[in-house]
Design a protein around this nucleic acid. Structure first.
Lengths: 256, 256
DNA sequence: ATCAATTTGTTCGTATGTATC
DNA sequence: CGATACATACGAACAAATTGA
């Protein structure tokens, strides 16, 4: 019998007990100023403190785990530990959201054209020597004449990883998040046909643009990096629109 | 006894049984080309098909429900129904992701400066007369001399809702998603002090810029709308940086 | 390195509430 | 009203994983 300990009216929406427990735990996290790595009370303690059954507590913890806020471990001194929610949770949420929505290539690239120059300007003064070396390696891997794979899709992947690495170096988590989301949506959704025949223009453009970007990065010139990136995305956009592309929505829901 | 119907080795990463069931259901959704409104098999059928316990199936369905992919209803012919995942799931995921990350106002506005002009250009040729009327109403509500509230926070909210309405009219779900996410993060995170004293410059700027936007919208001039919006965000950004603002991260975790 | 204690993970059973037809 | 079928909550037992003596 759920005795409803707080006789709230709650005529609009009834919150389940596990959801209440989950919110209480969240509130406890905020008010206790808990940080990543701190441990939550164990199941037994939560059962006592909240006065609910074990299944209810576990359901609440499962909700927090599904949001990526905690991980749990077994054994003595085990239990739930606060963690930084992984990027994959955001990607999953956005992928689910977009699955039933129409996706078109033009606006995806329009968005890239808006945010990627900002990313280039952000990282221009922040890239370490190791970062620059890794980017150089990826540039090579994206062109067949400079050590890249013979498979067009693998070269395309190296191109996208180049942009992912820039996002990794970004000082703004939100800007990095948007750029990575765009990269992954493009990765999952866009399929380019006729990849083999006569598409070396794509390889050449990527190689040339990325190399120009590296020059701006090494000069620590944020504004030049921004301009080069804008031009790069515009060219890529034009080539993508010109090629026979199609949207493959199915992959959005998978790989969770 | 877990009979493990598919004797997969899975040495790399052990997935919980409920997660496997959730993925199997997702795969079934994709392969069956299910659309919003279609019904999933009932619990009893899933228990039989998957060969797992009731609790496991319920946990898997709870995961899909947490992702907003299904809603469940009771009664005869009840069960799980496919739904369009709500925007709130994306906001929740991004909010959780950002909670432990540093948030600064400058880069949030830099992002707005990148995407909002794109939004303005997108909707310029799409706004209906009803949309334009609603936007006019919100412009009035955002200025104390044109019917707006005396409370500074309420006027600020009208300003943000104006931008939300533009996102609602956007033809690109991804662009709309980014703009709404930015609006909500700004809504939750940024607190402006000294709101009462001498900040009519903010009201005036918003009123003037939004009005200029409406002119461009009525003229169906996408490029002018883009330019006006860019200038608007830049001015707002400058005013926000000038004011005594601070970041209140706590609200990111709450209101789930 | 083995073994025992601890803690979470999984499954089952049961009862009751609740919405739908 | 009443039958159906899901929703929620509790309790118990056992399995699995981890830690530490």
């Amino acid at each position: 019998m759920p005795p409803s300990p707080t006789p709230r009216i709650s005529r609009t929406k009834r919150l389940t007990r596990s959801a209440q427990v989950a919110n209480d735990i969240k509130r406890w996290i905020v008010q206790s100023h808990k940080k990543v790595g701190d441990k939550l009370p164990q199941e037994a303690a939560l059962i006592q403190q909240m006065g609910v059954a074990r299944g209810t507590v576990r359901e609440a913890l499962a909700a927090l785990q599904a949001q990526g806020l905690i991980t749990t471990s077994t054994g003595p001194n085990g239990g739930a530990t606060l963690t930084q929610p992984p990027y994959e949770r955001c990607l999953e949420a956005v992928s689910n959201f977009m699955y039933f929505e129409p996706v078109d290539i033009a606006t995806l690239y329009a968005l890239r054209r808006a945010v990627e120059p900002e990313l280039a300007a952000n990282v221009a003064t922040r890239l370490s020597d190791a970062d620059l070396a890794e980017l150089d390696r990826l540039i090579g891997a994206s062109h067949p004449a400079h050590g890249g794979s013979g498979d067009w899709n693998e070269r395309r992947e190296a191109d996208l990883v180049f942009h992912d690495r820039l996002a990794d170096a970004c000082s703004s988590p939100m800007l990095a998040l948007f750029c990575r989301l765009l990269n992954d949506i493009i990765r999952r959704v866009i399929v380019v046909r006729n990849a083999q025949q006569g598409f070396q223009a794509f390889d050449d453009d990527v190689f040339h643009s990325h190399s120009a970007l590296m020059d701006a990065f090494r000069a620590r010139d944020a504004e030049r990096a921004r301009a080069v990136m804008r031009e790069h995305i515009e060219q890529t956009e034009a080539l993508a629109m010109e090629a026979e592309t199609r949207v493959q929505r199915e992959r959005l829901l998978m790989d969770s």
